[in-house]
Design a protein around this nucleic acid. Structure first.
Lengths: 226, 226, 226, 226
DNA sequence: TATGAATGAGCCTTCATTCAT
DNA sequence: CATGAATGAAGGCTCATTCAT
C-alpha cells in the first residue's frame, strides 16, 4: 500500500528556480522507489546499493547520507510502502451501502487496482521473501498490514453474517480464503511470471471475478432460486 | 517432494568394514538436506557454504567434492526435492473410485501430508523468493512441478464435470483456486510464522477442510437437498 | 619498453587542491609498476594481488577499481610496457646515415639501454615463462613485439646487403642470430643472475660488443685488409 | 640431459608375471616424466599434483608416497633430468680428432639431438622460468649444468686457439656466443611455438648450421683463401 | 550537500597434503 | 603399497561503508 507520495514526480517544473531544492527533498523518495524496484526484482542481497543510487540518479555516497545502511534502507522501503491506508479503507467500508456480496467483490477488485497492480505489490513479495533475514520487518508488517487487513476482511464477513447474507462462517478460516488468492496472484506476478516467458499468463481480473463467484457461492445463504 | 532417501543414515556400524564408503554415498544427501534447511531458513545469498558443510558434518572443501559451486548446490537442492512424484500421484488419481468431492479433499490433504508439512515445502518458497536470481531454476520448476501439478488438478476437475458432479467450471481459473490456498499455506509457514511468534497460528488441516468445503459448495452441482 | 610516464609521481604538492584527483590518475601507473616488479620477481601465480596493491601503496580493493582481475592486470602490464616504440625506432633506423656495421652495433646497444637494462626487460622473460598459461598474451606479444622487431632487424640486414656491405645472408636465420644474444642476456639477467650470487656476472656491454664483432666479422664482405 | 632411464618404458612385457613389480619400481620414473611434461607445459604453480598422478596412471596419494611435497617433486624432476652426461661428453670431446670447426659444428648438432629436441630440453626452460621461486634449484642447475657446459665449450675454444685454428678470443664472451643460440632455440620451442600457431617455425638444424657458419667465420683465423 | 576514490571484512573456491581403509 | 575422501589454509574478488574533497 503505497504512500500518497507520487511515485514518479512530475519533472515538468513550472518554476525552474527551485528545481534543486525540490529535488533535494525528493531524494529520499527517489531512492526508496529505486530500492523498491530493485529489491523486488533481485532480492535484498543481490541488490547493490550502487545500483540503487544509480537508478535514483545520485552517487553511492549520497545514499548513505539519507540511510545509514543497506538494512535501514530496506526497512525504510518497507515502512514507506505500507503507510496505513487502512483508515481510509475502513471509512469506505463503513459507508458501503450495497449488499455484502457486492462488497466482497468490490474489495478484491479495489485491492488489485490500488495495490496488486501497482509497484507497491512488490513489497509483500519482498517481505515474504526476506522475512527470514528481517524478522523485525516481518513482525512490523504483520502488525501494520496483515492484522489490519484481516480485521477489515473480518468486518466484511461479519457484516454479511449480521445481515443474513452469508451463512455462518468460521471467521478465521474464511479470512484466509479471501486473502489466499491475492497472495497467490502476487507471488505469481513477482516470481514466476517475470522470468519464465513460457509461464501461462493469468488474467488477474478474470481470476478475481471467478474466484469471488466460487467463494460467494459457498458463502452465501442459498437463496430460494439458487 | 523429498525422495525416500533416509534423512539420517543409520550409522549402526554393523559391519565396520566400509564406514568410509558408506559415508561417501550418504554425503551428497546429507549436504542436500543441510542446504535445503539453510537455504529455506536464510535464503540463498545469506547462506554460507561453510555453514552448509558444517551442518552436514563435513568441512568446506568436502562440499566442493560433490557440488562444483554454490549455485549448482542450489540447483541440486531443487532438483532433488521435486523428483517426479507425479507419476505416482497420477496413478493414485486414476484409481480413485470415490466421488470427485472426496477426491478434491483427499488431494489437498495428501499434498499437505506429503509436501506441505515436510521440509520440502520450503523449496517452493525458495524458488519463488529467488526466482529473480535464478530464472533458469524458476523455468525448470515451472516445467517440472507447476505444469504437471496443474495438469493433475485439471484432470480432477474434468473428472468431476464429466461425472456430472461439478457444475461447468472455467478449468483455468478453478485450477488456480485450488492451488492458491496451498501456496498461501506455504508462504505463511515459511515466511511469517517462523519469525513472528505473535502471528496467528493457522491450523493447516482445519484451513484445508474449511477451504475445501467452501470451494466445493461453489463447485458442486446443487443437489436436491442443498 | 616503458612508457615515458614517470615511475614515481612527484608528490610535491604545490597545489594542495586536488591531491585526490592527481592520485587517481597516477594509480593505474603505480599499480602497473608494482605489478611489473612483482610479476618479474616471482611469476604470475606466486604474486598476490594484495602484495601488488601494497607495493603501490593502496589496498587490495583499490586494485580492482582499476583492473577487473589479476589476469587483466597482467595483460595490462604487458601492454603498457610494449606500447609501440617501433614507429620511433623505425624512424631512427630510416635516418641512420652511417655504415651498416655501425647500425647493427648501435641497434643492439640501444636496445640494451632502452629495454634490456630497464625493468621492462622483465616482460619478455615474463611472457616466455607464462606463455603456456596465457596463450592469448603470447600471441599478442608475438604480434606486437616479435614481428615488428624481426621486421626492423630484417630491414637493417637488407640495407647492409643492398649497400654491398654484408655478404648475401639468409635473412631468416640472420635475424635470429641477432636476436638470440639479446634473449640470452635477458634470461640470464632475470633467471640465473638474481638467485645465484655464485653465477658469473656477464657484463652486457662487453658481451654485446664482443658478440657484434663476432657476428659482423661473419656477415661483412671481407674487405681488402681483412 | 635425461638420465638413461627409458622415458617411455616398453610395456611389451615378455614375462607377464612381474609386471606389477616392475611397475612398482618404475613408479617414481613415470611420475617424474609426467611431472616434467606438465611443469614444462604449464609452469610449476599451474600444474596440479593430481594431474601429474593421473598422467602417470596412479592416484594422488601415491605421488606423496614417493615425493614428500610438490616442491620436492619439482626438485626431483630437475635433478633427475640433468644427471651428468658431461663425463661422457668430455670423453667424446677428448677423443675428437677432427679440426675445431668440425668440433664446434658437431657439438651444437649433438646437443640438439640429445637435448634440444628431446623432452629433456624442457627442464632448462623450466629452471629459467621458475628460478625466482626456486633459487636453490637454479643454483644447483648452475653448478651441475651451466658450469660444466661452459667448461666443455671453453675447452673446445681453447683447443681451437691452441691448434692455431681460432683467432685469439675472449673465452668468456665466446662461450656465451655459442650458448645463446641454443637458449634461444629452447625458449622459442617451449614458449612461443606451442601457443601461437601463427609463429614462424624455425628449422633448428638449418638455424644451427647457419649460426655455426656465421660464428666460425668470425672465429677462425682467416685462411689464405678467405 | 554531493561525490566517488578508497577501504577491508567477508565469502567462494582451489588444491596440496593427510590418513583411514 | 595404493587409494581417494577429507581437510583447511590461502587467495581472488565483491561490495557495503567511509571520508577527503
Amino acid at each position: 500500500m503505497p504512500a500518497s507520495r507520487p511515485l514518479a514526480p512530475p519533472d515538468s517544473d513550472a518554476e525552474p528556480r527551485q528545481r534543486r531544492a525540490r529535488r533535494k527533498e525528493a531524494r529520499p523518495g527517489e531512492l526508496l522507489d529505486a530500492a523498491l524496484q530493485l529489491f523486488v526484482e533481485k532480492g535484498f542481497a543481490a541488490t547493490r546499493v550502487e545500483e540503487v543510487a544509480a537508478r535514483a540518479g545520485v552517487s553511492k555516497g549520497t545514499l548513505f547520507l539519507y540511510f545509514p545502511s543497506k538494512e535501514e534502507l530496506f526497512k525504510a522501503v518497507v515502512r514507506e510502502n505500507i503507510a496505513g491506508r487502512f483508515p481510509e479503507w475502513n471509512e469506505e467500508l463503513a459507508q458501503f451501502s450495497g449488499d455484502s456480496a457486492e462488497l466482497v467483490r468490490y474489495c478484491l477488485h479495489t485491492w488489485w487496482e490500488r495495490v496488486g497492480m501497482t509497484p507497491a505489490s512488490g513489497i509483500t513479495k519482498l517481505v515474504m521473501s526476506e522475512a527470514g533475514m528481517f524478522p523485525e520487518i516481518a513482525a512490523f508488517y504483520q502488525q501494520e498490514v496483515i492484522e489490519p487487513g484481516h480485521d477489515l476482511i473480518r468486518r466484511i464477513l461479519q457484516r454479511g453474517m449480521d445481515r443474513g447474507e452469508f451463512r455462518p462462517l468460521s471467521l478465521e478460516y474464511a479470512v484466509y480464503s479471501l486473502i489466499a488468492p491475492m497472495i497467490f496472484l502476487l507471488m505469481w506476478k513477482h516470481s514466476m511470471a517475470p522470468c519464465c516467458p513460457a509461464t501461462e499468463v493469468i488474467d488477474p481480473i478474470g481470476f478475481i471475478d471467478n474466484q469471488v463467484d466460487l467463494l460467494l457461492r459457498g458463502m452465501l445463504v442459498p437463496g430460494p432460486t439458487a
